[in-house]
Write a protein that binds this DNA or RNA. Structure first.
Length: 562
RNA sequence: GGCCCGUUGGUCAAGCGGCUAAGACACCGCCCUUUCACGGCGGUAACGGGAGUUCGAUUCUCCCACGGGUCACCA
């Protein structure tokens, strides 16, 4: 068969050659060891946690090596494309510290535009490039047209699906598919001409010559040495609309754009043989590959499953809603990505995660379970190191969007809010009350009258009269100007006068001798003022809310005890 | 079902032929403490199973089991 003629027949409008493309996209000039990586999402939805993983690795590797990190939009499936998804993706990524040097970026108006010399960075706009290489492959007899329609394929699939219900005969199906594939390869130039004349759509398939019994030895930077069978499937290169499939676009783009390291989820491992074949057919140097393990979750049966888009914790917007700060999420990701990150971080407490020397060798080979407990712990530590002004700003920002009433209260007096968030902050052993911004309200909402309510009641074993007496005496003696020690000495005195031990040691040694201890009398006051048995330091709380309000709340409690 | 990957405590994980098998989270106890939070100390808890190689296997090889992924004109 005259393959050159066939190629001409199929691609009459393509006048460019692979050599033209090589010229248009020359090799990058970068220092030794610089890595070029990319994030290549399809604009079909939101960024999810699983997607943040490989992109964090790619970003770190590129920027740590003085290389280039770029964004390529894989919009080759028009059917699945979601309006505005690409823009959302870019914005979300940016909030998690993933910034691109090159590729599809947002301009001032919030629209996507290209930056860099290797564009366009939207695959839908690179038709000519792909077709140039496809034409080349056809002319070399390495690819061929296939006129089987989508409907015909669907029909075959439906038959298969029916049998699948009753235990698919996988072997029979495989044989059938193989036979169909072989049949597709048998065609004549005349048949092609006829189809074209009739305007029939076609796809371009690769002519696979691999033998699956032969294993390719391959080294993945994460998985290590693996063996994969050669590809023997005539997979589609160009769809009937002239747009490439992922496989073909991956080979062409990553070659032309100079990607040195392809970082992607391990779900791509099974199709690696296809990609290697393509790189060989096209005469491209294969990049290094890193197949990263999936994030898992526990399903209802207690089995690990890939964290899918619908799962809680998948959508990054969920984290925003729940009030997690990006800094914490990034750190959590680092702890999962590099097992020695935490150790490094404790030794370099003042440094950010981007200072951490990320090491490919420290990456886990198996998929890990998403753990909210751990995220919360990381988050508490991260937030405990922030200063009061920053926390105030962030909580307010969050609340204004997700809890407007609370947000308005915070925003109405910034200095007041800041005083509250300053409690126990800044020292060597900072309080760790907040894992999320959403934790703020239950923690300190009582400072505001509109959110104050008596949540905890007094334990039954205390006499109401004692409680009321404590509160009354406290009010009488309370002086806002007292320092913490005199303040507490007064509380002790009240305790003593009512038969409660002012000394904890004495009480513990002989609890029978007292009605209770100063811990209890303190609790009486605490519940009246904060509404809760557990709260930050009572003295400081009173200093912040002021004498008037303190008295008001205590009086109210006294009345309710009568 | 074929193919590929994986399997150390509840979770994340060190380990890369010889260790009382680290550490972190969670959990429990004690201490500190007027509550809480923090902090300190301690505790429960693991190499999926079976062969082989070896003086010696968590570590190397094979088999099995289990888990995951994948088998589209989706990425």
């Amino acid at each position: 068969m005259d393959y050159n003629y066939l190629a001409e027949l199929l691609f009459p409008n393509i006048k460019t050659t692979p050599a033209d493309m090589e010229e248009r996209y020359p090799a990058r000039e970068l220092p030794e060891g610089a890595k070029v990586t990319r994030f290549a999402p399809s604009p079909t939805g939101f960024v999810h946690f699983g997607g943040l993983f490989p992109s964090t690795v790619a970003e770190r590797l590129a920027h740590q090596s003085g290389g280039v990190f770029y964004l390529r939009i894989e919009d080759t499936d028009a059917k699945r494309e979601v309006e505005g998804a690409a823009e959302g993706l870019i914005r979300t990524l940016a909030t998690y510290g993933i910034e691109f040097d090159e590729g599809a970026i947002l301009d001032e108006s919030g629209k996507i535009s290209d930056k860099g010399a290797y564009g366009p960075y939207k695959q839908s706009m690179r038709g000519e490039i792909y077709q140039t290489f496809a034409k080349q492959l056809v002319s070399e007899g390495k690819a061929y047209p296939c006129f089987t329609t989508e409907e015909e394929l669907d029909e075959l699939q439906q038959i298969d699906k029916k049998t699948e219900i009753k235990n698919t005969d996988w072997q029979a199906e495989a044989e059938k598919k193989k036979a169909e594939m072989l049949a597709r390869r048998n065609f004549t130039i005349e048949e092609v001409e006829e189809h074209l004349k009739a305007g029939h759509p076609f796809v371009i398939r690769i002519l696979a010559e691999g033998n699956p019994d032969n294993k390719i030895k391959f080294t993945d930077l994460v998985k290590g040495n693996i063996e994969i069978p050669e590809n023997d499937e005539d997979f589609v290169l160009l769809k009937s609309d002239g747009i490439p499939t992922y496989h073909f676009a991956h080979a062409v783009d990553d070659h032309l754009m100079g990607t040195t390291h392809v970082i992607r989820g391990e779900e791509w491992l099974p199709s690696l043989a296809k990609h290697l074949q393509l790189f060989r057919y096209l005469g491209f140097k294969t990049p290094k590959y890193m197949h990263i393990s999936q994030i898992m979750k526990l399903d209802d049966n207690g089995n690990k499953k890939k964290l899918s888009k619908r799962d809680m914790g998948a959508n990054m917007d969920d984290y925003t809603r729940m009030g997690y700060c990006p800094e914490a999420v990034c750190e959590y990701i680092m702890t999962l990505l590099n097992s020695n990150y935490e150790e490094w971080h404790t030794q370099n407490a003042d440094k950010g995660y981007k200072d951490f020397p990320f090491n490919i060798k420290k990456m886990s080979v198996s998929g890990c379970l998403f753990d909210f407990d751990k995220l919360n712990d990381v988050s508490k530590n991260v937030i405990s190191k922030m200063d009061a002004a920053y926390v105030t700003e962030k909580v307010t920002e969050w609340a204004l969007e997700f809890d407007p009433e609370f947000g308005k209260a915070l925003a109405s007096d910034k200095a007041f809010a800041e005083k509250i968030f300053a409690i126990g902050r800044g020292g060597k052993k900072p309080r760790k009350d907040l894992a999320t911004w959403a934790d703020a309200k239950p923690y300190m909402g009582f400072f505001y009258d509109e959110f104050f309510k008596v949540e905890d009641s007094y334990p039954e074993n205390f006499d109401k009269a004692d409680i009321a007496a404590t509160l009354e005496k406290f009010l009488e003696s309370y002086d806002e100007k007292d320092d913490m020690n005199t303040w507490f000495d007064k509380v002790k005195a009240i305790a003593d006068s009512l038969g409660f031990s002012p000394d904890m040691k004495a009480y513990k040694q002989n609890p029978e001798a007292f009605k209770g201890s100063v811990a209890d009398t303190s609790m009486f006051i605490r519940v009246a003022v904060t509404g809760k048995q557990n709260a930050p330091d009572l003295y400081t709380v009173m200093q912040i809310i002021g004498k008037e309000k303190t008295a008001e709340r205590i009086n109210k409690m006294i009345n309710s005890l009568k």
